[in-house]
Design a protein around this nucleic acid. Structure first.
Lengths: 231, 231
DNA sequence: AACATCCACTTGTCTGATAAGCTTATAGGC
DNA sequence: GCCTATAAGCTTATCAGACAAGTGGATGTT
C-alpha cells in the first residue's frame, strides 16, 4: 500500500470507471475486452475486485462475460445510457450529445405523461403539487434546492400516470439533469420563468385538461433547453 | 454436492433469482434485505457467490448495499423494470401489468420515433427496411422468425432517429416482447395483418411523410395490443 | 483433409483469512 | 440521571490461493 488511500467509492467501481472511460474513449484496440489477469497486473487489486469491476461493465452492457471465453466488447449502441454510472464515465463530448438526446426524449415523453396524469389526477396529488410549487417559488434564489423540487414536481406528475416503465425513465432523468447541472453552472435568472411554466402545468392538471397539460409541458421543456449545449 | 447439478445459468444468477422472486412477491417482512450470512446458510454457496447475487439485485435497484450497514430493500417504484432479469423474476400478475404498461409506453414513444425517422431516412436504411419487410412477408408461417424480424424492423427505424436514449428503450422493448410471447402463445392469424401495417409504415417512411409515419405506427401499435392481457 | 485428443487459457466457485465501517451497548464522568 | 466516549460485535470490503469447468486452438493420428 504505497499509494494514497482515497476512498470516495468502492474499489471495483473505481477500476470499472477507469476501464469504462478507456473503452468509451475508443482507447481499446480490437473487440477484446479487459481480462481478469490484465486488471490484476495493471491495478494491483485482488481477483475479487477485478471480477466485480467486470460485472459492473457487464451490467451496463458494455462487455460480455462467459466462462471459458475472453471478455468481449459490446456495441456502443446497446450500452445502458440510462445508468448514472455510465453518464459519469462518458467523455465530455459524448456526454453532451447524450444529454441533448435525453432532453429530446423528455420532450417526447413528458407531454404524453402530463396528458395521462391530467386524467388520473387526484386531490391528494394536486395538493402535493401545489406545495411543491409554492416551495419552488420560495427557492428561486437557491438553484440546488430548486432543482430538487423541480425533479420532484416532474416525478410526482409521472407517478400519476401509473406506469412503471415511465417511472423508471423519469428516475433516470434525474441523473441526466444533475449531470447537466454539473457541467454548466446554469441560468440563474431563468428560475422565475420556470416557476411560471410549472404553474401553467399545475393549473392545467387542476382543470383536468389533458390537451392543455400536454401543451404546457411541451412548452416548458422546449424552453428549458438542455443547458450548456453548444452547436 | 448432494443436489442435482443443472447449470442453465451461473450460480449467483440463480440465487439472485430466488431472492428477487421472494422480494417481488412481498415475501420479505421488514425493510431488511437478505444478508450475506443468511444466503450462505440457506443456499450453501460460497461468500463470493452470495455477494455477486446481492450485487445483481443492487444493479436492479432492488436493494442497497453499503459497508457496515445491513442490506436494505429499496422501493419497488424505482426498480429497473427495463432489465430482462427483473422481467423474468416478477410474479405472473405483476408481469402482466408491466407488459401492459410497456405497451402503453411504446404507443407513446414509437410514433414519435417514426416521425423523426421519416425526417432522417436514408436510401440505405430504406433498403434494409424493405428487405426486412420482404422477409416478414415470407415468414408468416413461422412466428419465431417473424418476431425477430419484427423486432429488427422497429429497431432499424429507431436507429434512424439517432437518439441513444430511445435506442436503449427499444433495446429493452425486445425483452418485454419476448416475455409476452412466452406467456401467451399468440395470435397465429394476425401475422398477415401485421405485415400490412408494417408496410404502411414503410411506405410513409419512403415518402418521408412524418405525420403519416407517426399515424401508421400508432395504428399498428394500437392494433397489436399487448397479447394475452385480459381486461 | 478430416477427425479425435489434448493442452493452455479463461472464467466460475470454494475456503479461510484480515480490514474497514456501522450500530449498539456499556462504562465512565459530570 | 444524563451525556459522552469507548469498546464490542455485527456487517460488508478486500485479500490470497486453490481447484473446477468451459472454450478454443494446437497437436497428432488416420
Amino acid at each position: 500500500m504505497d499509494t494514497v488511500e482515497v476512498k470516495l467509492q468502492t474499489l471495483p467501481k473505481q477500476v470499472a470507471g477507469v476501464l469504462a472511460r478507456r473503452i468509451a474513449s475508443g482507447g481499446v484496440a480490437g473487440g477484446q475486452g479487459p481480462s481478469e489477469q490484465q486488471i490484476l497486473q495493471e491495478f494491483g487489486v485482488s481477483r475479487a475486485v477485478a471480477r466485480e469491476a467486470l460485472k459492473i461493465l457487464a451490467s451496463l452492457d458494455m462487455i460480455e462475460i462467459a466462462q471459458g471465453r475472453r471478455v468481449v466488447l459490446r456495441p456502443a449502441e446497446e450500452w445502458d445510457y440510462l445508468s448514472p454510472l455510465l453518464i459519469d464515465w462518458l467523455p465530455p463530448e459524448q456526454m453532451r450529445e447524450i444529454l441533448a438526446e435525453a432532453h429530446a426524449t423528455r420532450i417526447i415523453i413528458e407531454p404524453a405523461i402530463a396528458a395521462i396524469a391530467a386524467k388520473h389526477m387526484t386531490k391528494e396529488k394536486l395538493e402535493r403539487l401545489g406545495t411543491l410549487l409554492a416551495a419552488m417559488s420560495a427557492s428561486e434564489d437557491n438553484p440546488d434546492a430548486y432543482l430538487k423540487l423541480d425533479l420532484d414536481f416532474h416525478m410526482e406528475i409521472c407517478r400519476a400516470a401509473q406506469n412503471r416503465i415511465l417511472d423508471r425513465f423519469m428516475y433516470s432523468s434525474r441523473w441526466w439533469q444533475m449531470a447537466s447541472r454539473r457541467i454548466s453552472n446554469q441560468m440563474p435568472h431563468a428560475l422565475p420563468s420556470a416557476t411560471e411554466m410549472h404553474r401553467a402545468i399545475y393549473e392545467a392538471l387542476v382543470a383536468r385538461d389533458e390537451k392543455r397539460a400536454e401543451e404546457a409541458m411541451r412548452r416548458h421543456l422546449k424552453k428549458t433547453t438542455a443547458v450548456g449545449l453548444p452547436r
